[in-house]
Design a protein around this nucleic acid. Structure first.
Lengths: 152, 152
DNA sequence: TTTAATTCCTAGTGGTTTAATCGATTACAT
DNA sequence: ATGTAATCGATTAAACCACTAGGAATTAAA
C-alpha cells in the first residue's frame, strides 16, 4: 500500500554509499557497498544493472573494479535514482508520468486530478533532493553520534 | 512503484458515489454503486467493511437498505478514506504514521528524513481534499461534457 | 600466463499481496 | 412468510517481491 519497494530503498542507499566514497576515477566494489549497507550482494547486483542502464553509474570489471557515479553527487537527484529503479512516478495507472493509461468512465476522472496532485507532491520532494544533500545529512548525523559517544 | 491499490481507488470512488447521492437518511444499495462505478459488487462489499469499521459509513440491512455516509461530504477528507482502507500512510516502514519500525543502521537513517518528507507531501494533498471538493469537480466535468455533446 | 577479483546475465523459488469469487447467514420491510 | 439486501468466512488464481544460485565474461595483478 503505497510503499517504496526495497528496489528504491536499497538502490538509493547504494547510491549514497557511492556518493560518500565519491571519486571520479576510483571505483567502489559492490562487496563493500553490500557490507556497509547490509544488503544482499546478489540482489544489489541486479539493482546496479538498472542504474547502469540508466546512465547514473558506470562499471569497471576485474580486480580493483566496481562502480562509479557518472556525475558528481550534487548533480544527481533522488528523483532520477528512483525513476531509474522503478520507472515513472505513477500513484495510479491513469496519471503515470510516462504514458498514462486512458480511463473510460468519466466518473473515474473525478479522482484523476487528485492523483495528479499526489504525483506532483511526491516528484517535487524527490526532485529537489540530491545525493550531496543526503551526504551532508550523513555528516551531520555522524557528528552528533560522535558527540554522544564522548558524553557517555 | 508507489502505487495506490484498487482498494484505495475503488473505495474512494464508492465514497464519491455515496457523496453524490448524499442524503442523511436514505441509504444507497451497493448494487447501484457497483454498477455506476463499474466495480465488482463482491469485492466492493469487502471494501465497505473497512469503511464501516472505520466509522465513515453505516449500513442498513434489508430492502431499501444500503450504505450511508455518517457525515456530510464536506466533513470527510480523502485522507480519512485512504487510511481507513489501507492503514497509515507509510512510504517506508520506518516512517509510518502509526508505529514506525526502528532501523538499526545509522546509514539507513540518512534516508529517513527524505521518506518523511514524502509522507508529509502525500498526506498534505490527501488531507486537504474533501469528498465535497471531488463532487464539485464532478459537476464541472459533467457540465463540460454536456456542452461538448451540444456542440457535436 | 595464470589466478583472482569483479561485473554480467539468466533462471528459479518461496512468500506475500491483490483482487476477486462463492456460499451460507442474518436482518428487515412489505 | 417472502424476498431483498447486508454480513461473514473461506478459498483462489495471478501477480509481484526479494532473494538465491550458478555460470560466463572481463580484466588487473602476480
Amino acid at each position: 500500500m503505497l510503499r517504496f519497494s526495497t528496489r528504491s530503498r536499497y538502490g538509493l542507499r547504494a547510491m549514497i554509499e557511492l556518493a560518500l566514497n565519491y571519486s571520479p576515477t576510483q571505483p567502489t566494489p559492490l562487496v563493500r557497498v553490500a557490507e556497509s549497507q547490509d544488503i544482499s550482494e546478489g540482489y544489489l547486483e541486479q539493482l546496479m544493472t538498472f542504474l547502469r542502464k540508466g546512465g547514473l553509474v558506470r562499471s569497471v570489471r576485474g580486480p580493483q573494479g566496481g562502480y562509479l557515479l557518472t556525475r558528481v553527487p550534487s548533480k544527481i537527484t533522488v528523483g532520477e535514482v528512483i525513476r531509474c529503479l522503478e520507472g515513472p512516478i505513477s500513484p495510479t495507472g491513469c496519471v503515470s508520468e510516462d504514458n498514462p493509461e486512458i480511463c473510460q468512465r468519466s466518473s473515474a476522472c473525478i479522482t484523476k486530478v487528485l492523483w495528479e496532485r499526489v504525483r506532483e507532491a511526491i516528484a517535487s520532494v524527490l526532485d529537489s533532493t540530491t545525493l550531496e544533500d543526503l551526504c551532508k545529512d550523513a555528516d551531520k548525523l555522524r557528528q552528533i553520534q560522535e558527540a554522544d559517544n564522548y558524553s557517555i
